[in-house]
Nucleic acid binder design. Structure first.
Length: 1143
RNA sequence: GCCGGUGUGGCGAAAUGGCAGACGCACGGGACUUAAAAUCCCGGGACUGUAAAAAGUCGUGCGGGUUCGAGUCCCGCCACCGGCACCA
C-alpha cells in the first residue's frame, strides 16, 4: 500500500485541472483525454464531476471508523467516474477552528495553532494511509489566514448588502433607498465620511444638520444589512464563556459539553438568514436530497400561513396583534394570551385597572432577570419568574400551564365581546407577534389552559352544524356558531372559512394574511479566541453614540492578536479584549472583539476547493463556472458582455424565417394581469391580439403557444422589442438557469432578470452548440422546475426529426453545483442550512452561478459498536482504524466499510466481517499470482528489512493459468454479469451489492484452468475503485508480464492494444457490458400451481409462451397438484414463470 | 404529540409484483497437515416426516385487502431508530 500511495503522490495522479491550466504531458489525465501539454479551456475539458466529503474537524482523538465510511464511498465513486471519463474534483481539507484546541490552550497555554497543526498532521497521515484519490494540491484549512481572509471577505459582502423585498434578492447596500424623512446626506464611504472617523480632531456639533441626517441614515442602513448588530436575549453559556446559536442549544444545554445555558440580553452580530427563509424552503424542491433531510430543513424553517388579527384593548388606545393559523375560529376566541416578554407589558399595561394605576417601578421594568420583588404583586412576580426560568423549565418540564390575568380586556373584532387578557409563559415572545388569541375549543394548549383557569369555551367548528364537536384541532370540519351582521362562516369548510374571514378582516383593516417562520436570524458572534476576527471597528459619532464600520478589503486578512491567556476576561469580555494594543487603534476607534462561529469557515469551503491557491479572489470565475456547472459560456454573460449576447439573440430572432417579425413569443395573459404588467413595466400591451376563453374571460394572446398551458404557468407574452424598452433587461441577468430541458430534451438556458416584481425571461433552446429557438416571456415567480416546451415555438425549418437528432447529439448534462456531497446527518440543519444561505447571497450578488451549492446529498449511516451501541470511550467499544489497517490493510478496510450494508443505514461494526472481505482479496490474489513465487517472496521478506519489501514484490510472478487466450462464452458471461452489476450498483450507490457481485465473479473465476488476460484485466478495472492498491499491484504484474514487448502472443488469438496498458490503472476506461453476452440459450422456468412452486422446467430461451405453457402442463410434479381439478387459467410470464390456476 | 426512516435466518444483509434468504460472518462436516493455522470442498430458515431420502406444511413485525401470484402495492396497527417539540 505505501508503494502505491507514494506512486500516486509522486505522479500527482489525482490532480484535477482548472480551465487555464497546462496539463503536463506525462499526466495520465492528459493521456486519457488527449490534452498532453495543453493549456486547457473549459471546452477542452471533459464534463466535471465534483464529489465532496464533509471535511473533518481534526480532533486530537484522530480518525474513527465513521470518517472512512463516507470517504471510502466518495473515493470509490471518484475513481469510478474518473475511469468513466469524467473530470473528477475530489478534495479534502480541515474545519480547524473550534473549541477543543482553545480549551486546550486555556489549560496549557499552548497556542491553538500548534494543537491544530499537530492534529492536522495526524489526520493527514491517517487519511493518506487509506489510499483515497484526493487532489491534495487543493487542501484547505479554515484557520489559514490565506483561507479566512476570504471568510472575512464574504462577511464584508454580507455586511455591505441588504435584502431587497422588491427584487427578492440581496443587493449592495448602495441600492438601499432611504425613507423620505431622511434628507440626502453624505454618501457612505466618501471623503467626508472618513473624516468622521477622527472625532477628536474635528468634532461636529450637535446642530450639524448633515451629521444628524447621516446618523439617522446610518441607523436605517445598519438596520437593513444582512450582517447586523442586535441587542437581544441570547443563549449564554457560563461554562463555555460564550453565547450560542439556537442550533447549538439542545434541551436547554450546550451541544458542545452539555453545559446549562441561560437567556441573557447582549449585543451580538446577527446574520439575516430569515430573509432567505422562503428561498431556502422553496429551493429544496430543486435538489436531490433525501426526504428525511429535506423534511428536517422544512421543519426547521417552519413555515406557517395564517393571519394577523388586531384586538383593541378595552378602554385604551393600545392594540394587540395576534398571529393565528386558524382565523376561521375567531368567533371562538375567548381570551388573549401575551408572552411575559410582550412589549405592551413594558410599562403601560398593568393588572387590575388598565391603563391607569401604573406603579413607577413598573415603568422602568427591565426584561433582564433580577431579584424577585414584593410577593404581593402576583402579576409582576409571574413575569419575573418566567424571565428567570430557562426555556427548558418553561417548555419541557412545565407540564402544567400557568398564567395570570392582567385585569384588562380586549374586544373580539368579530362579535364585540370583551375577552380577558392573560399572560402565560406557554406563549413565546420570539414567534409571531408574541401574543395569541386563545380558542380553547379547537386548540389543545388553549383548552388545557382554559380548563385550569375556568375560561369560557365556545365551539365554532364541527363536522356539521348540529353535532357537538369534541375533537379540538380537526381541520376537516365546517364552521358553526360563526356569524355576525356582516359575515357568515357557518357551514363553510375550514379552508373556505379561513379565506373568507381573512378577506373580511383585510377589508375592514382588522388584519391581514401573514406567513410566519420558525427560523430565527443567525447569531453569528462568539466570545472565543480561536475563530475569525470580525473585520469591523467601532467608532463614536459627535453625540457619543457608538457605531460600527467595516474595514476595507485591503485590510484582510485580519489576524487575531497574540495572547498569553486565552480565557475570557473576568468581566465577560471575549479573550481578544485582552489585547489592548490590538483592540485600540491610533485614531481612537476600537476593534470588534467577538469572533465568528466555527460554521463560518465551513459555509464556503467547497467553493475554495475550486481554486484553492488563488490570492486575487475567493475563487476564480472560470473555475467556479466549470466546476459548479454554470453555463460554459457563462463568463461571456458577465455584465459587460451580456449586451453583446442579447444583440446576438435578437439578431437571430430578427431573421426568424416563418414570421419575419422581430420576435418569437408565446403566452397569454388575462386583461387584469395585463394591466398590472403594463403598470409595473410600462409596456404598452394595447396592440396585442385578444382571446376570449370559454368562460368569456378576455386574454391577450401572442403569436404562439397554447392558451391554457401558458396561462397555467403564469407566462406573459412580450416581444423582444418591448423587452429592450426595459432598461434592466440590458443589464446582466441575475439568474442563469442552465439545468433545463426543452420539450425534446434539448438543453435550454434561461436568463432571468427580476423587474418590478416580475421575472423577465429570455430562453435559448440549444441543440449541440447551435441555437434552435429563442423565447421571451414574463413569469410571476421563480418556479425552479417547470418544463419548457420548445416544439411549438421553434422555427418551422426545424422538423421534429431534426430536433430528435439534435437531442441525441446534445452535450452531456452538467449538474449544477456539487454533484455528490456525502456526510453525517448531524449537519442536517446547521452547516447545510448556513452554507445554502451564504451560497444564495453570493448567487444574488453575482459571485456564483448556481442558486444551490449541493445538488445531491447523501447521509452516511452511523457505525455502531459491535454491541450495537454508539461507539464511545466510556463503553470501551471504540474501533481504531489504525488497528484495522495494521491487521488487514487499507483495501480490506475500505471493502469492509462498504460491504457492511447500505451507505445510509445505521450498522454495527463487526471485525470478523473484515476477515470475510480480506479472504475475498486473498482469493483474488491467488487467482492472479503464482503460489510458488509468493512463497519465495515470503521467505525472502522475513529476513529483509521492511524497506526492501517493495523491491522483493517483483519476485512474485503471474499465475500460470493467466494466458492470452480467447475467453469462452461462459467466461464472458460471468465477466459481463459482473460489469453490469457493478456499474449499475455504483450508479445507485449500492456498494455492498457491487462487492458481492465481484465475489460472485471470483468464486467462478477461481476454478477456471485458463484465465484469459482480457477478462482478468477488465476485472481489475472494476476492482480498482474499491481496492486500489491491490488492483494496481496486480495490474502492474499483468501489464508487465503481458505487454507486447515481453510477450509473444500465441497464435495471435488475442491482440493486446499497447495504448491502454500505458495508462495508469485509475485512468483505464471503465468496461462496458455487452447485453448480447448475457443471453442464455436455455432458461429455468418455475412452474407454480395456484401460486405455489411445484416444479422447474428447462426451456429454450426462444420458446414461445404456448410452448412453455404446454411444457408446464406436462410437468409430472405439477400434475400431481392438478389432479381431479380443472385448469381455469394459465399465466405465462415470458422468461420468468408459469402459474397454473386450478380449482 | 408531530415528522421521517426501519422491521427478512444465529448475525450483517440480498431480492424491476414472479423460485425469499444472493454475498458474507458465525457454525457443523470433510480434504490437506504429525498437529494447528491458512487454504480448498460440502452443508445449514423452521416444523412434520424418514435409517437416510423422498415428500409435505409453515415462514419477510402484527391484522386485513388487492392480485393468478405480495417481503414488494393498499388500509389499519405494533415496535425500534433519528429529528422536532407549548411555533398558536
Amino acid at each position: 500500500e505505501p508503494k502505491w500511495q507514494q506512486f500516486w503522490e509522486e505522479q500527482q495522479s489525482f490532480r484535477a485541472f482548472n480551465p487555464g491550466e497546462v496539463v503536463p504531458s506525462e499526466h495520465p489525465f492528459a493521456k486519457r483525454h488527449g490534452l498532453e501539454g495543453k493549456k486547457v479551456s473549459a471546452a477542452d475539458l471533459p464534463p466535471k464531476y465534483y464529489i465532496l466529503d464533509m471535511f473533518p474537524y481534526p480532533s486530537g482523538a484522530g480518525l474513527h471508523v465513521g470518517h472512512p465510511e463516507g470517504y471510502t464511498a466518495t473515493d470509490i465513486l471518484a475513481r469510478y467516474k474518473r475511469a468513466a471519463g469524467l473530470h473528477v474534483l475530489h478534495p479534502m481539507g480541515w474545519d480547524a477552528f473550534g473549541l477543543p484546541a482553545e480549551q486546550y490552550a486555556i489549560k496549557t497555554g499552548q497556542h491553538p495553532r500548534q494543537t491544530t497543526e499537530a492534529n492536522i498532521a495526524n489526520f493527514t497521515k491517517q487519511i493518506k494511509s487509506l489510499g483515497f484519490s484526493y487532489d491534495w494540491s487543493r487542501e484547505v484549512d479554515t484557520t489559514d489566514p490565506k483561507y479566512f481572509r476570504w471568510t472575512q471577505w464574504i462577511f464584508l459582502k454580507l455586511y455591505n448588502s441588504w435584502f431587497n423585498p422588491e427584487t427578492n434578492q440581496a443587493e449592495p447596500i448602495e441600492t438601499l433607498k432611504y425613507p423620505a424623512e431622511s434628507a440626502p446626506g453624505v454618501p457612505p464611504g466618501s471623503a467626508s465620511d472618513k473624516s468622521s472617523g477622527a472625532p477628536t480632531s474635528h468634532a461636529p456639533t450637535r446642530q450639524d444638520a448633515g451629521g444628524t441626517s447621516e446618523t439617522s441614515r446610518r441607523a436605517y442602513r445598519d438596520s437593513k444589512r444582512l450582517a447586523f448588530v442586535m441587542e437581544a436575549p441570547v443563549w449564554w453559556c457560563e461554562q463555555l464563556g460564550t453565547v450560542l446559536a439556537n442550533e447549538e442549544v439542545i434541551d436547554g444545554k450546550s451541544e458542545v459539553g452539555g453545559f446549562p445555558v441561560v437567556r441573557r440580553p447582549m449585543r451580538q452580530w446577527m446574520l439575516r438568514i430569515t430573509a432567505y427563509a422562503e428561498k431556502l424552503l422553496a429551493d429544496l424542491d430543486t435538489i436531490d436530497w433525501s426526504d428525511s433531510l429535506k423534511e428536517m430543513q422544512r421543519n426547521w424553517i417552519g413555515k406557517s400561513e395564517g393571519a394577523e388579527v388586531e384586538f383593541q384593548v378595552d378602554g385604551s388606545t393600545d392594540k394587540i396583534r395576534v398571529f393565528t393559523t386558524r382565523p376561521d375560529t375567531l368567533f371562538g376566541a375567548t381570551y388573549i394570551v401575551l408572552a411575559p416578554e410582550h412589549k405592551l407589558l413594558k410599562g403601560n399595561l398593568v393588572p387590575f385597572g388598565w391603563p391607569a394605576n401604573t406603579p413607577e417601578d413598573w415603568k422602568k421594568d427591565p426584561i433582564a432577570p433580577h431579584e424577585i420583588g414584593s410577593p404581593t404583586d402576583i402579576f409582576r412576580n409571574y413575569r419575573l419568574l418566567a424571565f428567570a426560568k430557562s426555556d427548558l423549565e418553561r417548555t419541557e418540564l412545565a407540564k402544567e400551564k400557568t398564567g395570570v390575568f392582567t385585569g384588562a380586556y380586549a374586544i373580539n373584532p368579530v362579535n364585540g365581546e370583551k375577552i380577558p387578557i392573560w399572560i402565560a409563559d406557554y406563549v413565546l415572545a420570539t414567534y409571531g407577534t408574541g401574543a395569541i388569541m386563545a380558542v380553547p375549543a379547537h386548540d389543545e394548549r388553549d383548552f388545557e389552559f382554559a380548563v385550569k383557569y375556568e375560561l369560557p369555551i365556545v365551539h365554532v367548528v364541527g363536522p356539521d352544524a348540529q353535532t357537538t364537536y369534541e375533537d379540538w384541532a380537526d381541520e376537516d370540519g365546517v364552521s358553526i356558531n360563526s356569524a355576525n351582521s356582516e359575515i357568515v362562516l357557518n357551514g363553510l369548510p375550514t379552508a373556505e372559512a379561513k379565506a373568507k374571514i381573512t378577506a373580511w378582516l383585510e377589508a375592514k383593516g382588522l388584519g391581514k394574511k401573514t406567513i410566519n417562520y420558525k427560523l430565527r436570524d443567525w447569531l453569528f458572534s462568539r466570545q472565543r479566541y480561536w475563530g475569525e476576527p470580525f473585520p469591523i471597528v467601532w467608532k463614536k459619532d459627535a453625540n457619543g453614540t457608538a457605531y460600527h464600520e467595516a474595514l476595507p478589503e485591503s485590510a484582510l486578512p485580519l489576524l487575531p492578536p497574540a495572547l498569553d491567556d486565552y480565557k475570557p476576561t473576568p468581566d465577560g469580555q471575549p479573550p481578544l479584549a485582552r489585547a489592548q494594543d490590538w483592540v485600540n487603534l491610533p485614531d481612537g476607534s476600537v476593534r470588534e472583539t467577538n469572533t465568528m462561529p466555527q460554521w463560518a469557515g465551513s459555509c464556503w469551503y467547497y467553493l475554495r476547493y475550486l481554486d484553492a491557491r488563488r490570492d486575487e479572489s475567493f475563487c476564480g470565475t472560470l473555475a467556479e463556472h466549470y466546476w459548479m456547472g454554470g453555463p460554459t459560456e457563462g463568463l461571456l454573460l458577465r455584465p459587460e458582455q451580456w449586451a453583446a449576447r442579447l444583440s446576438e439573440l435578437f439578431a437571430y430572432a430578427n431573421s426568424h424565417p416563418s414570421t419575419g417579425k422581430q420576435y418569437i413569443t408565446y403566452g397569454v395573459v388575462g386583461e387584469a394581469e395585463a394591466a398590472r404588467l403594463q403598470a409595473a413595466t410600462g409596456l404598452d400591451v394595447s396592440g396585442y391580439r385578444r382571446f376570449v376563453d370559454d368562460q368569456a374571460i378576455s386574454h391577450i394572446l401572442a403569436e404562439h403557444g397554447d392558451a391554457r398551458t401558458e396561462a397555467a404557468r403564469g407566462h406573459f407574452a412580450v416581444t423582444l422589442e418591448d423587452l429592450l424598452l426595459i432598461p434592466e433587461v440590458v443589464m446582466h441577468p441575475d439568474r442563469i438557469v442552465h439545468d433545463r430541458k426543452s420539450g425534446m430534451g434539448l438543453e435550454a438556458i434561461l436568463y432571468e432578470k427580476r423587474v418590478n416584481g416580475f421575472i423577465c425571461c429570455v430562453e435559448e433552446v440549444r441543440g449541440k452548440n447551435q441555437m434552435l429557438a429563442i423565447k421571451t416571456f414574463f413569469k410571476k415567480k421563480t418556479t425552479a422546475a417547470h418544463a419548457s416546451d420548445g416544439l411549438d415555438h421553434t422555427p418551422e425549418t426545424l422538423r421534429r426529426s431534426e430536433l430528435t437528432k439534435a437531442a441525441a447529439a446534445a452535450p452531456v448534462k452538467v449538474t449544477p453545483g456539487v454533484d455528490l456531497y456525502v456526510g453525517g446527518t448531524e449537519h442536517a440543519v446547521l452547516h447545510l442550512l448556513y452554507a445554502r444561505f451564504w451560497h444564495k447571497v453570493l448567487f444574488d450578488l453575482g459571485y456564483v452561478s448556481t442558486p444551490e451549492p449541493f445538488f445531491k446529498l447523501v447521509n452516511q449511516g452511523l457505525i455502531l459498536g459491535e454491541d450495537m451501541q454508539k461507539m464511545s470511550k466510556s463503553r470501551g467499544n471504540v474501533v481504531n482504524p489504525d488497528d484495522i489497517l495494521v491487521e488487514y490493510g487499507a483495501d480490506a478496510f475500505r471493502l469492509y466499510e462498504m460491504f457492511m450494508g447500505p451507505l445510509e443505514m445505521v450498522k454495527p461494526w463487526n471485525t470478523k466481517g473484515v476477515e470475510g472481505v480480506y479472504r475475498f482479496l486473498g482469493r483474488v490474489w491467488r487467482m492472479y499470482v503464482d503460489e510458488a513465487s509468493e512463497v519465495e517472496f515470503e521467505q525472502a521478506s522475513t529476513t529483509a528489512e521492511p524497506a526492501q519489501h517493495r523491491e522483493l514484490l517483483k519476485l512474485i510472478k503471474l499465475h500460470a493459468g493467466i494466458k492470452d487466450a480467447e475467453p469462452t462464452k461462459e467466461q464472458l458471461k460471468v465477466l459481463h454479469t459482473c460489469i453490469k452489476k457493478v456499474t449499475e450498483d455504483l450508479d445507485g450507490l449500492r456498494f455492498n451489492t457491487a462487492i458481492s457481485a465481484m465475489m460472485v465473479f471470483s468464486n467462478e473465476a477461481m476454478n477456471w484452468a485458463t484465465k484469459p488476460v482480457s477478462v482478468m484485466r477488465e476485472f481489475l478495472i472494476l476492482l480498482q475503485p474499491f481496492a486500489p492498491h491491490f488492483a494496481e499491484e496486480l495490474w502492474e504484474k499483468l501489464s508487465k508480464a503481458q505487454s507486447p514487448k515481453s510477450k509473444v502472443t500465441d497464435g495471435g488469438s488475442a491482440t493486446l492494444d499497447l495504448g491502454p496498458w500505458t495508462l495508469d490503472l485509475g485512468y483505464q476506461p471503465w468496461p462496458k457490458f455487452d447485453p448480447a453476452l448475457l443471453v442464455e440459450d436455455t432458461l429455468e422456468i418455475p412452474v407454480q400451481v395456484n401460486g405455489k412452486l411445484r416444479d422447474v422446467i428447462r426451456v429454450a430461451a426462444t420458446a414461445s409462451a404456448q410452448e412453455i405453457e404446454s411444457l408446464a402442463l406436462k410437468s409430472e410434479k405439477a400434475q400431481q397438484f392438478m389432479a381431479g381439478q380443472t385448469v381455469k387459467k394459465v399465466i405465462v410470464v415470458p422468461k420468468k414463470l408459469v402459474n397454473i390456476v386450478v380449482g
